[in-house]
Design a protein around this nucleic acid. Structure first.
Lengths: 195, 195
DNA sequence: GACTAAAAAATGAACAAGCATTCATAAACT
DNA sequence: AGTTTATGAATGCTTGTTCATTTTTTAGTC
C-alpha cells in the first residue's frame, strides 16, 4: 500500500471533478481518471456515488471544524473571536477553491436527493458562531436582544456568499483580509451593547 | 386557448417539481404530470430541460425586481430602504417556499452545468442593494469606507441563508418580521457613519 | 347556425444515448 | 500458493427527446 491511500486519492479527485462539473454532471469515470484508478476501484472504497459526496462532506468539514476550534482557543474577546472566524473562513475558501465550490454548491441541495442524510457536521460548524454570540451576551459585550440562532445563519450566509463571489470573480478588487474585516466590522459594530 | 396558457402552467409545475426533487432528479414526465400535459407538449414551449430552468429564473426574478423597485419608490431614507428590502425579501421567500427553494438551490449552481448562461437578472436584483448603499454614502448616512460591492453580497447572503433556514425548519421560533428586523438592524447599525 | 377543410396544438409510445454499477479476470502482495 | 487489491468491458436501467398520429381550433362558405 502506498503512503497516500486510494481512499484519499479518490476523495481529492472527487473534489476536483465535482467542483468543475457539479455532482450530477460528474461521471464516475471522470473521478476514476482524475484519481488514476479504474472505475471499479472506486466501488471498493465507496458504496456508490452519493457515498463519495457524503464522505467528502464529513471528512473535509471535520477538518475545518478542528482547525477553527483550535484557532479560537487563543482568543477570549468575543469580538476578536468573530473576526477570527470570518478571516479564517474566507482564507480557507480562497485557498481551497475547489473544495469551497463543492461545499457551497452541493451542501445545500444535498438534502434534496439524499433524503436520509442530515448534515450534522455542517450544523456543528455554524454552531461555533452561535456559541461565540452566547459568550458575548453573557459578558455583556453583545446586545441581549440578539437571537443567536438567527445571527449564526446571517453571519455564515454573509461569509459564504462573499467568499463565493471572491472565488468566482477573476479580478479581485479587494483582498481576503479587507473583505473579512469589512464583514466582521459591520457585524460586530451592529451587535454591540450600548455604551 | 385557455385563460392560463400552457407556458405558465409548465413553469409553475416545474417550480413545484424542482423544489421537491431538485433539477437533476426531476423528470420531464414529472413536470408534465404536474402540469397536466403530455411529455411532448413541454417541447412545444421549451427547447429542453435547461430551457425550462432558465425561463423560470428570468421570469420569476424579473417579477421580483419589479416588485421591490416599486416598493422602494415610496422611501427616501437609505436605512429605511435597506429594511424594506430585507423585509420584502424574507416575506417573498416565506410566501413562495417552492420558488425560494428552487432559486436558493439551483441558481448558484446553474453556471456549473450551463456554461454559456450568465444570470443577469440575479445580478440586477443584488445591485438594488449596492445602489442603496451608494445613495447612503452620498448622503453621509453610511460610512465612506464601506465597499458597496462587498456589502451587497454580504447583505444578500445573510438574507438568503436566513430565509433558507426559515423555510426548512418546521417550527418557527421567530416571525418573518422579527427576523428581517434583526438582520437589517445589525447591518444598519453596523454601517452608520459616526455621529 | 351548421358544415367543412385546413392549420395549429397536443399526445404518448418508441428511440437512443448516457452512465452507475457489477463481476469475471488479472495483477500485486504476503 | 493463497490472499488481497485492482481492472475495465459488459450490463441494464433510466430518462430526455422525437415524431407519426390524433384532437382541437380557426376560418370560410352556404
Amino acid at each position: 500500500m502506498r503512503k497516500s491511500n486510494k481512499h484519499t486519492k479518490i476523495i481529492e479527485a472527487a473534489i476536483t471533478v465535482f467542483a468543475k462539473k457539479g455532482f450530477f454532471s460528474a461521471r464516475i469515470s471522470d473521478i476514476a481518471k482524475e484519481a488514476q484508478v479504474a472505475d471499479g476501484t472506486i466501488y471498493l472504497y465507496f458504496n456508490n456515488k452519493y457515498d463519495i459526496l457524503i464522505s467528502l462532506f464529513e471528512e473535509e468539514i471535520g477538518k475545518i471544524i478542528l482547525e477553527i476550534k483550535l484557532l479560537l482557543e487563543n482568543a477570549t474577546d468575543p469580538r476578536e473571536m468573530l473576526h477570527i472566524f470570518a478571516l479564517h473562513h474566507m482564507q480557507l475558501m480562497a485557498e481551497h477553491k475547489e473544495l469551497a465550490e463543492v461545499l457551497q454548491m452541493e451542501l445545500r441541495q444535498s438534502n434534496k436527493f439524499m433524503k436520509e442524510y442530515r448534515n450534522t457536521k455542517f450544523i456543528e460548524y455554524v454552531d461555533v458562531v452561535s456559541a461565540i454570540i452566547h459568550k458575548g451576551q453573557e459578558e455583556g459585550v453583545f446586545r441581549q436582544s440578539l437571537l443567536p440562532g438567527v445571527f449564526k445563519r446571517a453571519f455564515f450566509g454573509a461569509l459564504d456568499e462573499t467568499s463565493r463571489l471572491w472565488i468566482l470573480s477573476p479580478d479581485h478588487h479587494y483582498t481576503i483580509d479587507e473583505t473579512a474585516s469589512q464583514i466582521s466590522d459591520i457585524f460586530i459594530t451592529g451587535i454591540m451593547a450600548k455604551g
